[in-house]
């Protein structure tokens, strides 16, 4: 780990001023950044501690939207009554992530900016275009069991590891960003970039911006939602494939569907094609399978992860089936 300056910010104004220093990085829960600093993957000159910022509340806005402070800890958000009742898929996604200890530390803003778990990203002796642009990608043709099946490029096949973001993508969440230049809001869907030929650019955040809040729309369909995660052991493991889904069926016909996949791309993968296939379709096993097929038609496997395509197909179908069962939600 190299030397760095440490600044503790008591308020957002101080934080966003401090981050304008070259080489400055925000420190939230530290569950990802500190590990990467130890491995010399992250080498900030200044660490701006934002854990004292008063951004740790969930508020219900007058128009029914929910505003989540970016410093909210994962475990606190998962336990919040409004989240559990109105957006169960988000509470479930949070609880499916990491371990209890990590969830107590990890913040909402940090979760959005999590770095990939691709093994070559943290191996300084390996080629990785994300860590060292232009060096190449050892995951292509290498150990890529958990690589992307959507949106990968010849430069990078890494996945985004967050569970929370998969639910946020399905919920059409908005990210609030603040800098000395002002405040802006971006939809979470599209916030994370596909690798293209510049996998080092991971999100739409600017170097001087702080995530201050996540906003959720007032979305009645989300009350009937579910997060389903397939992993190698019963807890504390990253998703091979995960599904966040919400479904509304009237008179046997799908009237609204929200669907996103995790563990499959460099972004939480909003399954627009599957949603389109579902809309207006009869709520049957066949429709669910067809919707999954519609989404997965675009999937491309790496050398070791063809199983993910089939696994994703089954996970999507089964999640929709479960949501449609009486009492199947939440």
């Amino acid at each position: 780990m190299k030397d760095f300056a440490y600044v503790s910010a008591p308020d957002v104004a101080t934080a966003v001023r401090a981050i304008t220093e070259p080489g400055a990085k925000f420190l939230g829960g530290g569950t990802n950044l500190v590990d990467l600093m130890r491995q010399n993957v992250e080498r900030p000159d200044t660490v701006v501690d934002i854990t004292r910022l008063p951004l740790d509340r969930v508020e219900e806005l007058p128009d029914g939207r929910i505003r989540i402070g970016a410093m909210m800890r994962n475990s606190a958000l998962a336990a919040h009554r409004l989240i559990r009742t109105r957006y169960p898929m988000l509470a479930q996604a949070l609880l499916a992530g990491a371990s209890g200890q990590l969830r107590n530390m990890a913040t909402v803003g940090g979760n959005v900016l999590q770095r990939t778990r691709c093994p070559y990203f943290v191996d300084l002796a390996a080629r990785c275009n994300k860590r060292e642009p232009g060096s190449g990608c050892d995951a292509i043709g290498g150990f890529n069991r958990n690589a992307a099946i959507f949106g990968a490029s010849e430069s990078c096949v890494a996945t985004h590891p967050s569970d929370m973001c998969v639910a946020l993508a399905a919920l059409d969440a908005t990210i609030e960003l603040e800098s000395v230049r002002g405040v802006r809001r971006l939809p979470l869907v599209g916030f994370h970039a596909l690798p293209g030929d510049a996998p080092q650019h991971e999100t739409a955040i600017a170097a001087d911006e702080l995530i201050t809040a996540i906003e959720l729309p007032d979305l009645p369909v989300a009350a009937r939602s579910r997060y389903r995660k397939v992993r190698d052991r019963a807890s504390y493991a990253f998703a091979l494939v995960s599904v966040a889904a919400a479904l509304e069926v009237r008179d046997g016909v799908v009237t609204e569907a929200r669907l996103a996949l995790g563990g499959v791309a460099s972004r939480p993968w909003r399954a627009h094609a599957a949603e389109r296939a579902l809309m207006g379709a009869p709520a049957t096993e066949e429709s669910f399978r067809r919707a999954a097929d519609a989404e997965l038609a675009g999937a491309v496997a790496q050398s070791q992860n063809a199983f993910k395509i089939e696994l994703a197909r089954r996970a999507v179908t089964a999640t929709l089936r479960q949501l449609h069962l009486p009492g199947g939600a939440a």
Partner: peptide, 8 residues
């Protein structure tokens, strides 16, 4: 799958 709700 445990509490990840993969099956009931």
């Amino acid at each position: 799958g445990g509490v990840a709700q993969t099956t009931h």
